[in-house]
């Protein structure tokens, strides 16, 4: 009997360890995208401003993924021979949107307006890291509540600690 409890305890501890190992080290922080899109080339080498493509960031709670028309706006002319661009073009020809994989995913109960943060002068880098150097986009922030609050505290956001500022 005593032994059984011991087994259960050992098994339980191992279970929790396994869970966290998975969570901390095996989470896909930089998932493979349907198109091998490089922020490094766009935002880094070519210095395209973020909001040229993420057009809603200053106007809405969502920043917006660039629509396929916007991609094709440049790539009808630029680098049309690249196989990755040809993939984009094939989506455009099929009249299908590109199924990007979400990297920064907030739970449904969070009210996070990009607009308020952009207009308050928070640099995109603050949360999204040095995107200009990323060949494949990678999640650099935990997006956990403590992380949000640490910034709200630092910047002395008015009512920045009130639950209903961010929860909905």
């Amino acid at each position: 009997m005593k032994k059984l409890i011991l087994y259960a305890v050992v098994g339980g501890i191992a279970f929790v360890i396994g869970y966290f190992v998975n969570d901390q080290f095996f989470s896909d922080r930089a998932p493979v995208q349907p198109i091998n899109f490089s922020h490094k080339i766009h935002a880094g080498d070519n210095q395209i401003p973020c909001q040229y493509c993420h057009i809603y960031a200053e106007r809405s709670r969502v920043s917006g993924v660039p629509n396929v028309k916007r991609c094709m706006g440049c790539h009808q002319i630029i680098k049309t021979d690249s196989p990755e661009i040809q993939k984009v073009a094939s989506y455009w020809d099929k009249k299908e949107p590109i199924p990007w994989v979400k990297v920064y995913n907030l739970p449904d109960h969070v009210y996070f307006p990009h607009k308020r943060h952009v207009r308050a002068g928070v640099d995109c880098k603050n949360c999204h890291g040095d995107v200009a150097s990323m060949a494949r986009i990678e999640k650099v922030s935990s997006l956990q509540m403590g992380w949000c609050l640490s910034c709200h505290t630092k910047r002395e956001v008015k009512n920045g600690h009130d639950c209903w500022t961010c929860h909905k």
Binding site: A14, F15, V16, I17, G18, Y19, F20, V21, N22, D23, F26, S27, D28, P31, G64, V65, P66, N67, V68, K69, W92, K95, E96, P97, I98, P99, W100, V101, K102, N105
Partner: peptide, 20 residues
């Protein structure tokens, strides 16, 4: 534990842009 961690993760949510 590892498997549960894997399974309980939200499936890769998609970001579907507008075509136009």
């Amino acid at each position: 534990g590892f498997v549960l961690g894997k399974v309980s993760k939200p499936p890769g949510a998609k970001l579907i842009p507008y075509l136009i």
